[in-house]
């Protein structure tokens, strides 16, 4: 987190003038609103924040904010964010994207980002589909969901991102629903403030290719119990829930990735002496 003086901006001041490409009613609009609210609540200066993403509808989010942004290549948002945060620990680095981007093509990076525990917040807008490429099954899609690419369904069990994040060592694990803008904003502020790698899965409906997801607003519910600091308890809980439990699941206290000392341009160290015979 930045050490600069608090910044008194409204949530709307964090939004850029670029018009989102999203379909009307897409859950990602709400995520954008929540993210802007959360950084306004934290009073972070926009130039001290970098939002880094991959490719997908959800990954378009950086350009819609008035912060520094990086819209990289498909699946590589986490390494991009990791390099930035390690090199520039003074910045607040937020990584964002979709379920295809983060769990499929970028799945390996998720494991290692959790394990490495660099102080970044990772938001996955999960719509259980590849939205941008017009409706193919993703790693979180139900096995019987019918599509052109997988007629009759994939027959493959979905991936359980929160369990994976816990098992891989994420230091903050939560689930939210995009329609709950205030709750999501509060959760994101908490995730950003929590040291180490914070993982937030946001159920964010794709109204175009998954109109059934409009029902999600009636299905989500608060968790029966508050968060835990015991990872195994959190894992057991999330393994057995219905997937619509909203809230912070786990807060850990693992030491974050050791950060580099400040970059020093003036360095003129003498490394050549070691070569003298």
């Amino acid at each position: 987190m930045s050490a600069v003086a608090p910044c008194k901006l409204k949530a709307s001041d964090y939004k850029s003038d670029t018009k989102p490409v999203w379909c009307p009613g897409c859950g990602d609009y709400h995520v954008l609103a929540s993210l802007a609210k959360s950084i306004a609540a934290l009073a972070l200066a926009p130039e001290q924040i970098a939002v880094v993403s991959g490719i997908g509808c959800s990954s378009r989010i950086p350009a819609y904010l008035n912060c520094y942004g990086f819209h990289g290549v498909h699946g590589r948002a986490l390494p991009l964010a990791t390099g930035l945060k390690v090199a520039r620990p003074d910045l607040t680095v937020i990584c964002a994207g979709g379920d295809g981007d983060g769990f499929s093509i970028g799945g390996n990076h998720l494991l290692h980002a959790c394990r490495r525990n660099v102080d970044i917040t990772y938001i996955v807008m999960d719509n259980e589909i590849y939205g941008m490429t017009k409706g193919q099954p993703s790693p979180t899609t139900a096995p019987d969901w019918d599509s052109s690419l997988a007629p009759g369904g994939t027959g493959v069990s979905p991936f359980h991102p929160l369990v994976i994040a816990l098992a891989s060592g994420a230091n903050f694990v939560a689930r939210s629903f995009s329609g709950d803008v205030n709750g999501t904003a509060k959760m994101l502020a908490e995730a950003i403030s929590h040291p180490g790698f914070s993982f937030v899965q946001i159920l964010s409906p794709c109204v175009t290719f998954r109109p059934d997801q409009r029902e999600w607003k009636n299905m989500v519910h608060p968790p029966p119990v508050p968060f835990t600091t015991d990872a195994s308890q959190a894992a057991r809980r999330v393994m057995t829930d219905d997937g619509f439990n909203i809230g912070v699941l786990y807060k850990g206290s693992r030491a974050k990735y050791a950060q580099a000392v400040a970059h020093d341009d003036a360095f003129e160290g003498d490394f050549q002496n070691e070569f003298l015979v």
Binding site: F70, G72, P79, L80, T82, G83, L84, A260
Partner: peptide
């Protein structure tokens, strides 16, 4: 020298880490 080296999980990550760090001015 006041810098840092990060071990990546693969080369897809290492190139993107380097790009991320450089975007940060390093």
């Amino acid at each position: 020298a006041g810098g840092t080296l990060t071990q990546a999980e693969d080369e897809l990550a290492s190139i993107n880490m380097a790009i991320g760090a450089s975007f940060g001015g390093v």
